[in-house]
Design a binder for these strands. Sequence first.
DNA 1: TGACTAATGTAATAACATCACATATCGAGA
DNA 2: TCTCGATATGTGATGTTATTACATTAGTCA
Lengths: 134, 134
Amino acid sequence: MTTAHELTKNQALVFNTLSRAEGPLSAYTILDQLRGDGFRAPLQVYRALEKLLDYGMVHRLESINAFVACAHPHNHSHNHGMIAFAICEKCGQVSEFSDDVITQRVREWTSQNGFKQTKTTIEIRGVCAACGTA
Amino acid sequence: MTTAHELTKNQALVFNTLSRAEGPLSAYTILDQLRGDGFRAPLQVYRALEKLLDYGMVHRLESINAFVACAHPHNHSHNHGMIAFAICEKCGQVSEFSDDVITQRVREWTSQNGFKQTKTTIEIRGVCAACGTA
DNA sequence: TGACTAATGTAATAACATCACATATCGAGA
DNA sequence: TCTCGATATGTGATGTTATTACATTAGTCA
C-alpha cells in the first residue's frame, strides 16, 4: 500500500487545479489558472505534471493534449491493467475504465511479437450518454 | 468494394511521401520533403492529410503527433475493427494490427455506457523485437 | 455564361512543449 | 554548523505542431 506522495508546492497547486476541474485541462489552461499563485511560465506546469504523471496521480490524454486527475484513488502499486478513457467531444467529460480482457489481449500481441511495452494509450472519442440524449 | 480514391496533386504528393517513408512522419517533415514540389506552407500538408485520413489511407498517431500510410491495402469499406499501433521508441517503426476481441470489448463498454463512439485510438509505446535484442 | 463547389496559395497567429541557464531549497554527512 | 549534492524553482528564448483568415484558381454543371 503506497502512502500518499509528498507533493511540492507547485505539484500540489497543479494537482489541486486538475482535481477541482470538471474535465481535462491543457497545460496552458492550468498555467492561466495559477497565475494568481505566482506561476509565470509553461515549464512550471510541465515540470509539475511530469512528476504527477510519474506518481500516477494524473493522466495525459494524448488525443486532446490535455491532462486529468486520476479518477481512481487506487493504490499506485504495480500490477494494474491498462486504462482506457472515453472522452466526450461535446461536454469534455472523461470516463476512465480498466478492462482486463483488453489488457490481456494487448499483452498477448506484444509477447507474441517480442515488443516490450512501456506505455499504452487507449482513448475513445465520441459523445457521452448525457450529451447524446440532450 | 471501394475503388481507389482519385487524389488531387497535393494529396498524391503527401501520400507518396508517407508511403515511401520507413516510419511515421510529422506534418512539418512532410512539408520539408515537398518543398521541391512547390509546397510552402503547413496548411498544404494538413489539408491533404485531412482528406487522406478521411479516405482511411493514412493514420494519425496521436501519441507522437505523426502520420503513417495505412499498412493494409484493405478495402476501406465498413465493418473493420479498431486498429492498434505498436510504436518503437528506438527505431520509430510502427506495427499496425486489428484485434476483434479488443474491438468487441470496447463496443461493450460504450454500449453499456450509452457512449457513441466516433474514433478510437490504441497506441502501444515501447521497444520492438529488433531493437530489444540489438 | 454564370454560379456554385472543391482545391490551392500565403501570411499570420495560436496552441503545445522544451532548452538553457540561473537560483533556491533541503537533507545527509564531515 | 558547514558544505556538498540532489531536487525543485524561476525565467526568457526557442522549437514544434496546428489553425485562422482571406485571396485565388480550377472544375462542374445548369
